[in-house]
Design a binder for these strands. Sequence first.
RNA 1: GGGCGUGUAGCUCAGCUGGUUAGAGCAUCUCGUUUACACCGAGAGGGUCCGCGGUUCGAAUCCGUGCACGCCCACCA
Length: 900
Amino acid sequence: MSDPTRQSQTGRTAGRVREIDPAAIAKHFDSAEAEKRWDEAWQQSGVYRWDPIRPRAETYVVDTPPPTASGSLHVGHVFSYTQADVMVRYKRMRGMNIFYPMGWDDNGLPTERRVQNYYHVRCDPDQPYEPGLVLEEASAKVRKQPARLISRPNFIEACYTLIDEDEDYFRALWRRLGLSVDWTQEYQTIDDHCRRTAQRSFRDLFEKGVVYTSEAPTMWDVDFQCAVAQAEVEDKPMPGAYHRIEFAVEGGDGSFVIATTRPELLGACVGVTAHPDDERYRAYFGKRAITPLFRVPVPIFPSELADPEKGTGVLMVCTFGDATDVLWWRDQGLALRQLIGRSGRLVDVDFGSPAYGSLDPVAANRAYAELAGKNVKQAQQRIVELLRDPAASATGRGAPLVAEPEAIEHPVKFYEKGDRPLEYLPTRQWFARLLDRKQQLLAKGAEVQWHPPFMHARYRDWTENLSLDWCLSRQRYFGVPIPVWYPLGPDQRPDFAKAIVAATDSMPVDPTVDVPPGYAAAQRGQPGGFVGDSDVFDTWFTSSLTPQISSHWGEDPDRHARLFPADVRPQGHDIIRTWAFYTIAKALLHEDEVPWRHTMISGWILDPDRKKMSKSKGNVMTPLPLLEEYTADAGRYWAASARLGSDTAFDEQVWKIGKRLVTKLFNAGKFVLSQPGEAHPISDELDRSFVAELASLTAVCTSSYEQYDYAHALQQTESFFWTHFTDTYLELSKPRARWFADGAIGDAAVASGSAVATLRLGLSVLLRLFAPVLPYITEEIWSWAFAAELAHASIHAAPWPGASDFAHVPAPDDTGSFALAVSAHAAINKAKADAAVSMGREVERLVLVANPATLARLVPVLDDVLRAARCQSHATAADPSLEDGMFTVRDAVFVAKSEA
RNA sequence: GGGCGUGUAGCUCAGCUGGUUAGAGCAUCUCGUUUACACCGAGAGGGUCCGCGGUUCGAAUCCGUGCACGCCCACCA
């Protein structure tokens, strides 16, 4: 189909060209009608269908980003998905067999949240399943009441219902936008196939010893009650305060004051540290401090990580205030005094127990009773009051709080979707070992070609600075279950070291429902029986497998070989550290491969004030009204005008320009294809020099696209189309093109045929250069004549323009001829503008001035210039002072309007 | 604190490996209806290419440096 040797050539076709009847074509382009019609035609003809038979080398595989359909739809989606589609369309026209799937990322929190809000429900795993439960969108009245509690299976059903609706909406947008997706290759990250792929991935990593489970302090969101990975954490500046609290040194020899922003963790204090060189505290190293209020002795140790400049230079180590606390706790083998529970409230503890070892358990427990059950904020408030009481002192020298809290602003870690600061809680989680593979991760990242290249730095920086293994498990409901069971001992305690991973052929499994091999269902939860892991995977665990999901890794080796690694991953720069990183990690861990050879990184759409668009700011633009007003092609034009990787302020003006271009193409197409003519070879100097310009434009566009620089190709094509084609060549060749209709014979017929053939070649090439960006209008015009004439039913399956389009056109005698004609034409235009006459006004006579060499070179195209200007007679004058290629006009006399 | 990017006309942006007088579109102004297009055409005005220093016959472009803006990462006592 795309074999260039089978391509017929405009201008070579024998006999009359197939012209259209301009009257049969609407005055204006009805974009809405055309978009609907062509979308249907494309789906029917299957132009975007992947051919599973063609070899890998001819295949271009796209690892499409699966959108979160439950998220809000805005112009940013149009932006980045169009940029990818433009590249895909180019590759398709280059003859590549395109694999371009669409997935939906339904897993996880965004969907759960949307279901909770939409139906005003909460998932409660203890509720019984209600078969056939039908939920409705919650009314304002219902929303005022407490959310309805529904069972986990009901909740998951509700998720499925809603994502189906959301996906329909997205699908409609993608179709409207003209994304050349192969809709037979669709997946949902929650469907059986994806769950199987994710669980298979886990099993493979388990067998390779890459994943492990451990109970360790993990970042924890107290609202979602869920573990969080390093990649999902962001810092927010928060107001806080230094609280200066006096500790005693055991044995009565001294005291010191620590500064802390988290006084509520005083009861969780397990140590005290200062810099080894800090003279103020050197004497205390090796001794024990006594905490005020709770009177617990804790070791005092030196640490390089303590900053003498910060606070008072000495600080309390708690389980756990921050990441450094976790480090110290591990390195020093400190006690574990976990005060903060999973819900973010302080749990009950006994300060008299050996784990706490208070010297005055009664007083400690009395104080702590004031805090237990409170959340962090409330506890902080209360403990500050308690610390103002001199009786709480560990030194007996007055209130432990030695100064009023000093307000500061400091960065605090949040889950990116969370509302309250993260806590570190010791919980059992599954992890993937990444820290010991940094070098390989960096090497794979360097193997990928990043577009633009500087985006590679983000990947590199993130990988180099990685400090935690990947926490894979999440305490959520709507996700892919971790396919693991644990044997229960006689005491009903799970043996985590003997995890039973589901067999590949049983996947997908839900361990909370399915039974592990060798056990009976009745043994669930029984002594000597088993228990299923109730957690699900981090959503990235599944979405990092999109290349393998598409290639049917582990299921269809032939397909996998044809589709993996993919050729290109389009995505946003905000998810380099997550999606790109984890995808590279997975490909490395499973097969020691890169997941794709190229990645194209789109920028963001900012609002006109250069602020990021977000739902909460209320500055989100929805795309459909824009597409209605300006056409889908115009929206694509806007998206394709922006270079990869650069954030772009939304500018409706660009949509307007896009629409103007569409209209112009429509009109130019109508004109060119309505010229009748004998299809003579392209012979005239003007025509040949125009074709030479066209060929060089084509070469520029091709090389730009090869570098993923679609924006440059578009800009060049647009500028050529407007200035060289419509403003100039069309005008210059128009008189000759019309000769045929006037019954020209002999040389005139040849000259006329040359013009018509050139117009058609120009249009055909320009349409194809525009086709990746403007699929609708180009297809529309293509269908008028070229589809039959050039034997490619769809422009999107037509070959990308190249040497074979120009091979039959002889080179011009002077490659500068066209530029000279443009320049001379412009000089006459200026004379008309200066005289305030219309461009169509006939010229009785004029004098064309240029330097002698330029005048001589102009001769072969002079007639075309003069005819286009409606010039009855002329003279030339030499002015050696003028630069090469420059013209001016003198003594122009115009035919009076009434006569004309 | 580390890294990346950006800075060109009133606005949005092109200007590749250095090469005459720096470009486009929009906006402004003037003129013009011409059988593809008034959803149009022709023309004009408008710039210390962020500052400073350097390399060079020649710098928007290369080097150094400073400034401004944006982003990523680190910084949580």
